[in-house]
Nucleic acid binder design. Structure first.
Lengths: 164, 164
DNA sequence: CTAGCGTTGTCAAGCGTTCAACTATTCCGG
DNA sequence: CCGGAATAGTTGAACGCTTGACAACGCTAG
């Protein structure tokens, strides 16, 4: 009890906070559910495929891919293993560093991504862009930038996850 | 291929979308991690305890509690079972409807909630309120309201989770 | 009383994440 | 060169969450 009285949230702040978590938890769940339902992959897998599709040669080192998708190495390793089982990604030894592995998007993976993208984009429009005015969207950009700045200034544990 | 060309995201929209998921995934994870680390409970459990603590008699019917915490009945049933194991919640038969169960916050549960609250509030300030200006906060309220309106107008599956 | 129907809640299987080793390779100082 | 530290990535077990099938119950009508 060395706490000199925590700065409790005001009624307004409490309301803002509850709305925020409710809104964004719903939004993320809605996007994830659409992908899972229509394309049989969770949002995390979709993002891995997107990152690979944007990389030169459709290839990335595992660590780079982990950073790009804000994932821990362990999680990424398991995820890529599952993507490999589906034939969407292929792993190969890195020619320049024999410790490393390079993940490459296969043709099948690119096809799966191409098939999933239209529905996903439509869902993103539906839950976010269609709901907001142009001005709100501009405002949201500023808010997200501020939050990401806070994230960047917060120490993280060994991997990509928040610690404190 | 009856798709007359999906409305792809513009470069700006794509950037907005990626920032949004990154920012809010991080924020939710950061709050969850703090609670897990300092109080041994995930955010979902914390919210259940909060809802109970705000209810008359610290008690709610399981279904009401599920709605209040945007959870499916099945998920809530598991969660309450675990909270009961820890002695934080007690379940009893409902006196007015013998099909039903009433979940009640125990003294221990209230104590656990009281112990967890200050750190949680501090974390919420850190990741959200401290990062935003007063005007951004006002803007965020509007945005969240718009998203929640979209959520409300979206059909859900049998439980509380988004379907399409 | 009992048959049908909707509601309430639980159980079990499958999946994904995390944590803690563990191997192999590279880097760097002596 | 050699030996220790750091880096890259994988693995397996334990855990928690979600989903879908299912059982128990109560209400209403014949």
């Amino acid at each position: 009890m060395n706490d000199p009285g925590p700065r409790w949230l005001s009624a307004g702040e409490q309301h803002s906070w509850r709305d925020a978590i409710q809104a964004w938890q719903w939004l993320l769940a809605a996007v994830d559910a659409q992908l899972q339902r229509d394309s049989g992959m969770p949002l995390a897998y979709y993002e891995i495929l997107v990152r690979l599709s944007e990389a030169p040669d459709h290839s990335l080192r595992m660590t780079q891919l982990a950073e790009a998708s804000s994932s821990s190495k362990s999680r990424l390793s398991h995820a890529v293993a599952r993507l490999e089982e589906r034939g969407w990604v292929r792993r190969a030894d890195c020619p320049t560093d024999r410790r490393g592995q390079v993940a490459t998007l296969t043709d099948g993976g690119f096809a799966a991504l191409s098939a999933a993208a239209p529905g996903h984009v439509e869902q993103v429009r539906k839950v976010l862009f269609d709901a907001l005015t142009a001005e709100q969207l501009r405002q949201l950009d500023g808010i997200n930038t501020a939050i990401l700045a806070q994230a960047a200034s917060t120490p993280t544990d060994a991997d990509g996850c928040p610690a404190a």
